[in-house]
Amino acid sequence: MEKKTPFKKVTISPLVVKEQVIRLGEKTYKKTQEANVFFVGIGDFILFFWQTIKETFSLSFEFNEFLRQCFQIGNKTLPLISVTGLIMGGVLTIQSRPVLADFGALSLLPGMVASSIIREMGPVITALICAGKIGSGMGAELGSMKVSEQIDAMEVSSTHPIRFLVVTRVLAATLMIPILVLYADALGIMGSWAAANIKGSVSFVLFFNQAFRAIDFIDFFPALIKTFFFGAAIGLMGCYKGYSAGQGTKSVGIAANSAVVLSSLLVIIIDLIAVQITDMLL
């Protein structure tokens, strides 16, 4: 810039215009590239999803690897889910107790807590924990296999890496996460009973009777169904991010990280959709 004068006459030189136009062009190009990458990403995912489905229904199924993955999922998350489940029930109870006591409706406590655990808290919290633990694990494991060319090695030896690595993991997550959710629900209700016991003793049987009287099939079933989708989403995202990792060790971290982010996000979105659908149907 030259000397500062308060009212400077603006002269537009063609050179400046040209520069601006070029800058604008470059920016637009960059943005289009970004959009392009985004859509290519979606296309990639759809392709990956389609291949996974195709391989799922191929005749040979890697049963041993599937069992191993189921075991791994349970083994990795059980302690974490136990603790969270118990605390979740306890916290819910401690927080709702004063409100219910004000209304003199303390007898509704077990039912209310059980219903909110089974409908929402259990499935979503368990799924989010699994997104963190399982999703990142899959992203990192497959990512490092991709980076060290192990997946390519399976590919060129015609040993169907998607069938062996992805189908087994996605199915294992789809099966195991509902089971883990049921387990977390049960522990949540136990935690709730324990917390209720802190102030005034409640018999275990009475508490459970009250809790289960409040829960209908209608509460339970949609909540169970959505957990299968949570599981599938976590498995798919973890595997997709790992499987499509770039080159170099840095991509392993990126794959694990984006697997967690995207699968958590998917869990929340699926939950929203599930709530809407349940609401519409009932």
Binding site: E141, M145, S148, E149, Q150, D152, A153, V156, S157
Partner: peptide
């Protein structure tokens, strides 16, 4: 195909 890195399945 022998990969440069060997690409043995490390698990």
């Amino acid at each position: 195909f022998l990969f440069q890195s060997g690409a043995l399945y490390d698990s």
